[in-house]
């Protein structure tokens, strides 16, 4: 089976599980809603301040939501040891990772599409004129988060204290994504909306580098 088809099969399986249970999307949607409120209580920003801090809030909220969600993507294979079955399938090991990466990416993207307007309302910042570009920046960053997060979730699935460990591994590696994402978002929400090309290339470059590394190292991650 080709890599694309087997990746598609794993993705379909992940989506089917999610559509039956809604475990991940429900928890993440609620988490982001709560964080949107908590940030407002913590900073009680004025309109000017909101414009300045909103990019950071959006990215941090999605980062933390992502780390919570990514934890489960390999742990829930352990209950019935279904990962063993996936490994036995005559597919490339990278297909398992890529299928899960795409699934996590889709779940986070859904959350973002729902929550960017909600953030916009809560913080009185009009995002409609730049919505398309904003989503592009968010998607590029989220893809990086999904790639590295899924790989680290596979790594830590059998470690002790894995719930605590994943964010500790993930957040420092994601620092370039956070910087580039927040800067690009700030430029979009600023007085003269536009995106610096360097931020887009940083986000895109991060995605390309880590997808390649994942593809090269997937054999080691999925074995045993």
């Amino acid at each position: 089976m080709s890599l694309t088809r087997s990746t598609g099969a794993v993705l379909a399986k992940e989506l089917k599980i999610e559509l039956r249970t809604h475990d991940l999307t429900n928890t993440v949607l609620f988490f982001v809603l709560m964080v949107a409120g908590l940030f407002s209580f913590a900073f009680s920003p004025t309109v000017q301040e909101s414009r300045r801090i909103l990019p950071g809030l959006i990215w941090l909220a999605f980062f933390f939501a992502g780390t919570l969600m990514l934890q489960l993507c390999f742990v829930r294979e352990q209950v019935n040891d279904t990962l063993a079955a996936l490994r036995l399938a005559p597919i490339d090991p990278s297909a398992i990772l890529f299928g899960k990466i795409l699934a996590n990416f889709l779940f986070l993207v859904v959350t973002e599409i729902v929550f960017v307007p909600i953030f916009s309302v809560f913080y009185n910042v009009n995002v409609w004129p730049v919505m398309g570009q904003l989503l592009l920046v968010l998607f590029l960053g989220t893809f990086g988060l999904s790639v590295v997060g899924t790989v680290f979730s596979a790594m830590t699935a059998q470690a002790r204290m894995r719930e605590l460990l994943l964010p500790l591994l993930l957040l420092p590696v994601l620092a370039p994504v956070l910087i580039a994402g927040v800067e690009a978002t700030s430029e979009l929400l600023g007085a003269h909306p536009g995106i610096g090309r360097e931020w887009l290339s940083m986000l895109g470059g991060f995605d390309v580098i880590y997808v390649t590394a994942t593809w090269l190292l997937s054999g080691f991650l999925v074995e045993e």
Binding site: V148, V151, F152, M155, L169, P172, V173, A175, P176, I179, A180, G196, E198, W199, M202, G205, F206, I209, Y210, A213, L217, F220, L221
Partner: peptide
């Protein structure tokens, strides 16, 4: 695997902050 992922991050970090 983590060591490789971490080390790849260093140049990205450096350039993102340099800009």
């Amino acid at each position: 695997v983590f060591g490789i992922f971490a080390f790849l991050d260093v140049p990205l970090c450096y350039f993102s902050i340099r800009w």
